[in-house]
Design a protein around this nucleic acid. Structure first.
Length: 432
RNA sequence: GUGGCUGUAGUUCAGUUGGUUAGAGCGCAAGAUUGUGAUUCUUGAAGUCGCGGGUUCGAGUCCCGUCAGCCACCCCA
């Protein structure tokens, strides 16, 4: 083993795995565009201050999971651990708040210094969406519909949408007090983790998995019955819209989320295919973030969706679908044939056609056929002494094993055109 | 950050109570077949046994440390 290895919790992605990424990314972009969201790109690192103020000082992310470094100008920088704060910062900087609603999507890596395990990495990739300027539940619904379409369009049928409301500044403080009043007298019997949560972030008690907490949890005051009427109406309207559009969901009364900036709606799309991690997608409303970062009061809602987890869930639910053979394997026998075919290969690659593979190592014919299989090529073009003498090319369909001889033109461009036409007739539209 | 399990060819793994030159399947390469993909047969290449230290006459094997992977907690995408 070399001592030069990828950093802990990072992945190298090779073909054909990278093709699955491209397919997914293309599908996600297409859906976002269809919903009227435009792509935003922001730097991969930002001033540390942005995340401390945006995500919240006492969150796990800020306390222990950030990749923070000092640059040469002694500025504290952080590789983005999430993407909402950077988007808000960019819009703030360009003074793009205060007028019409704005919608963005993003796609790329994010970084968290965590201990890797199934479904958890230090560099992972996220597709996300942010909708600014709409206070009503229609925007919540739109964003959720987008996420659900992404999930369902890829055939992830076992993914489940969970939604909840965590209230706003009007009702959450009172609820927090009620929670404290409920748990404080029994603090000693809570799990060690929950005792810490009690002081730091009492809402987090709600989703504790510790068995010793469950009895107290069952009798705890619920978020829902403590919502103010505005929050409750918002939540009920969202449920109504989801019902009306046929989007299945579960009300998860104990769902809370890790970032400080959420208010009212929070949601997750969960899958059982992710090991101990369950969230494929997580998001919610953050009506106070823009103003907290110094901008005008601007309601907003969005989500982030983990691509590694998405692909993991896909792999777990799909039977490996073999992709159709495509393109040419050019098999040359001898240096002369190779020399003759290279202009043809070049011409084939200049016209927009299927992929063209060729091996230069002068391997024997058997091996070159095997290369064709490995490349998943559909057709083999064979050129040896016979073909050179007759001005022909032998073409073998690697799927049906049919062979045909093709008399070819004088120039490589003509030959390439002939080959492409031949391919189109037989492979792309065989019944035309 | 805490805990458990695991590190031996490209890969999946075997390797006896510590005992000479570390093995196999698959894959890869060459050939059998001077131009046809599966199968078969022959041959071959490929390993600082994760890394460092210790115990020992002797360590892949035992001990310590370290790094990495996997899994769970925590947390989240």
């Amino acid at each position: 083993m070399s001592t030069l290895v990828a950093p802990r919790g990072t992945l190298d992605i090779f073909p054909p795995e990278s093709a699955r990424w491209q397919t997914l990314e293309a599908a996600l972009r297409a859906i976002a565009l269809r919903f009227g969201y435009g792509e935003i790109r922001t730097p991969m690192f930002e001033a540390t201050e942005l995340f401390v103020r945006g995500v919240g000082e006492t969150t796990d992310i800020v306390e222990k999971e950030m990749y923070t470094f000092l640059d040469k100008g002694n500025r504290s920088m952080t590789l983005r651990p999430e993407w909402t704060a950077p988007v808000v910062r960019a819009l703030l900087e360009k003074k793009r708040f205060g007028q019409e609603a704005q919608r963005f999507f993003y796609l790329g890596p994010f970084f968290r210094y965590e201990r890797p395990q199934a479904g958890r990495l230090r560099q992972a990739h996220q597709f996300g969406v942010e909708a600014f300027g709409d206070a009503g539940p229609e925007a919540d619904h739109e964003v959720i519909a987008l996420a659900m379409q992404a999930v369902q369009s890829q055939g992830l049928t076992e993914a489940v949408l969970q939604i909840n409301s965590i209230g706003d500044q009007a009702c959450r403080p009172a609820y927090r007090e009620a929670l404290l009043a409920h748990f404080r007298p029994h603090a000693a019997s809570l799990s060690a983790d929950s005792q810490r949560r009690l002081e730091r972030n009492p809402l987090r008690l709600l989703d504790s998995k510790a068995p010793e907490d469950q009895a107290l949890l069952a009798t705890a005051p619920t978020l829902y019955e403590n919502l103010c009427s505005a929050c409750r109406e918002h939540f009920e309207m969202l449920c109504h819209l989801l019902d009306a559009t046929g989007i299945p969901y579960r009300h998860a009364p104990h769902l809370v989320r890790g970032f400080d900036y959420y208010s009212r709606t929070v949601f997750e799309i969960t899958s059982t295919a992710l090991g101990a991690q369950t969230a494929l997608c997580g998001g919610g409303r953050y009506d106070n973030l823009v103003s907290a970062l110094g901008g005008p009061a601007t309601p907003a809602v969005g989500f982030g969706l983990g691509l590694e987890r998405f692909l993991m869930a896909l792999a777990a639910t799909h039977n490996t679908t073999s992709t159709a053979r495509s393109g040419w394997q050019v098999i040359t026998l001898g240096a002369k044939a190779r020399e003759t075919l290279i202009p043809v290969v070049t011409a084939l690659r200049q016209i927009a056609g299927p992929p063209v593979y060729i091996d230069f190592a002068d391997r024997k014919i058997v091996t070159q056929y095997k290369l064709g299989d490995r490349n998943n090529a559909r057709m083999a073009i064979i050129a040896g002494e016979n073909e050179l003498n007759n001005q022909t090319l032998l073409i073998r369909d690697l799927e049906t094993r049919e062979e045909s001889s093709l008399r070819v033109g004088l120039t490589s461009t003509q030959t390439a055109q002939q080959l492409l036409q031949w391919y189109q007739e037989r492979v792309l539209s065989p019944h035309a």
